[in-house]
Each structure stands twice: as C-alpha cells, then as structure tokens.
Amino acid sequence: MAKGVMIVAEQRDGALRKISLELAATARKLADQSGDEVSAILLGSGIEGLAAQLGKYGVDKVFVGDSPAMEPYITEAHAAIVAKVVKDNDPAILLMGASVQGKDLSSRVAAKLATGLATDCTDVKIADGKLLAIRPMYAGKCFGEIVTNSNPAMASLRPNVFPAVENAKAGAVVKVDAAVDAASIKSKVLEVQKDTSGKVDLTEANVIVSGGRGMKGPEGFSILEELAGVLKGTVGASRAAVDAGWKLQKDQVGQTGKVVSPNLYIACGISGAIQHLAGMSSSKCIVAINKDAEAPIFTRADYGVVDDLFKVVPELTAVCKKMLA
C-alpha cells in the first residue's frame, strides 16, 4: 500500500535551492501526523553531499541519482528517473516546488504516473488520511481544495510560503541508477545565460520593492533600487512599467508576470489592478505608497501611505538605513 511522503529536491550549481528545504520541512509535518517516513529524490551531478542538508530539515532517506546525465536539468531525463523512483517506492504523497523547474517537472511526472496534481499550493494538510491541497484559482479570487483519488497524490508548493523548519533526521543516502538512454532525450541545453546582477529572483526574494506607472520613467526606479539595496530586496514592476520599457519582462509581477510571496512587498506608484494583485496577494506584509487615496492597492495593503512616492521613498530608505545600521 502506498505510504509515506516523498519530495523532489531541487538543486542548482551544486547547492540546494531554498524551496527544497521548504519541501522537506512541510513533508516532515505531514508525515509526522501518521508516523510515516519522509524521503527525497535528489538528482544532479556530484551532489551526493547535499543529502545531509535535507536530513537536517526532516528527511529520513534520500534517493540520490548522481550522474552527468542529470546535469543540466532536462525535463525528459529528470521525469523518467523521478517516475521510476516513485513507482519503485510507492509513496502516498509526492511534493515538488512550484518553481520554474518544479512546475515543468511535476506536470510531466503526474502525466507519467497518471495521477492528479494540485499546482502552486499555498497550504497542504491531511484530512481523512488523505492529502488536501489548497491553492489559489482565478488569480486568487477564490481558492480550491483539491483531493486526488489516485496515488501518489501530488502537489507543487508555492516558493516562500511554507516555513523551512529544521528537524534533524538521518538523511540516509540510497543511490539510484540515473542513467538514461541518450536517444530518448530530444532536448539539449545549449547555453545558460546567467543574470549577473547578483539580485535574488523575485519568486525567492524576502523583500520586493515594486514600481508602477507612477515612477514616471526608468530613472524613477533608482530610488526603488536604493530602498531595495538597504532592505536586501529585489525590485519588481507592474505591467504598465514593463510595457513602457522601463523594466524587463522578468521583473513583472502579476497575472502575466511572476507570482511572488515575499515577507514584505512595497508597491510604489502602482494602482493595484486585479491582474497585479493576482501576483502579490500572498505576500505576508503589503505596503502601498500612492498619492491617490482611492487606489485599489490600499484595499490589500497592511500599511498605506497616501503621498508623493518621490518624497516618501527616499525618506523611508534613510529611516531603514538608520534602523539597520
């Protein structure tokens, strides 16, 4: 009978990504309700050493597929190995990250296993001995409670939402064969163009300072960069700012941009259109700085300042600098 909670850990360049720790801690919490085991699948090349870190966050057993064929990530290769390890070990629940890679992989694995998958969940629990996955639908205008009747019940978890709590377990390594038939792999990564700005991606940032049409132009964003610099955050943008060419597509937050959930989201000169709210509503603390008291962003903000952002933001930067000094 299917038993236990399994996660698929994600690593890049030999380091575990934060979502992997969030997955491990969440799996631990679910498994502890029934006294079950937490296992992890870890794929890559030269990555066996990372298993111990997963152990620290509550993983009992780590299936390590260490092979040059696993680096860089290719959907077909990873999906084949993950599906095989899952079939061999028959977990009741399979969790992955709703990161770019996790979304790509989880859908393909769900198809291979002919099972149900709840994408981008913001909460997971056990109800009647089964996984109940809670996820925003219609851009967060409502939520769905998803139940899967096939095994394993799959869910992908929204990054930055679930706490990564330490809870040391064995993290014992079980090696798995990660060789793939090269002829079956049709895709090839020709080039990795790294963002050299050193900025944390919006989906993983703890603090986001976003600007909209109210920034008046690309130069306006420099005051947001300064605030973000002090708060160790990343600068985001509304679609209006991206479409005007002031920021890049990768900086866009919202329904046709990125979905983010930082600890702190500061919206400057953003009106709060429904499509923008879709991308940032799950942030833990929302601040709005807008000169129009009627702007819809204020309906979602925990803290609001009605004033000219060009006066407020530099002051806020100075205040924060002092506090953090």
């Binding site: 925003p136 939520f143 769905g144 925990d302």
Partner: peptide, 21 residues
C-alpha cells in the same frame, strides 16, 4: 474520469483592514 478533484471552492481568506498612516 478526473484524477484530481476540486472538492470545494472557497472564497479567499479575509485580510484584516490595513492601517493608513
């Protein structure tokens, strides 16, 4: 036959009213 079912649709969690400074 669907593998995953939306057992229930619920409204988004209410957000406490914010503070305007």
């Amino acid at each position: 036959e669907a593998k995953a079912k939306v057992a229930k649709t619920i409204p988004p969690p209410a957000r406490a009213a914010g503070k305007i400074i």
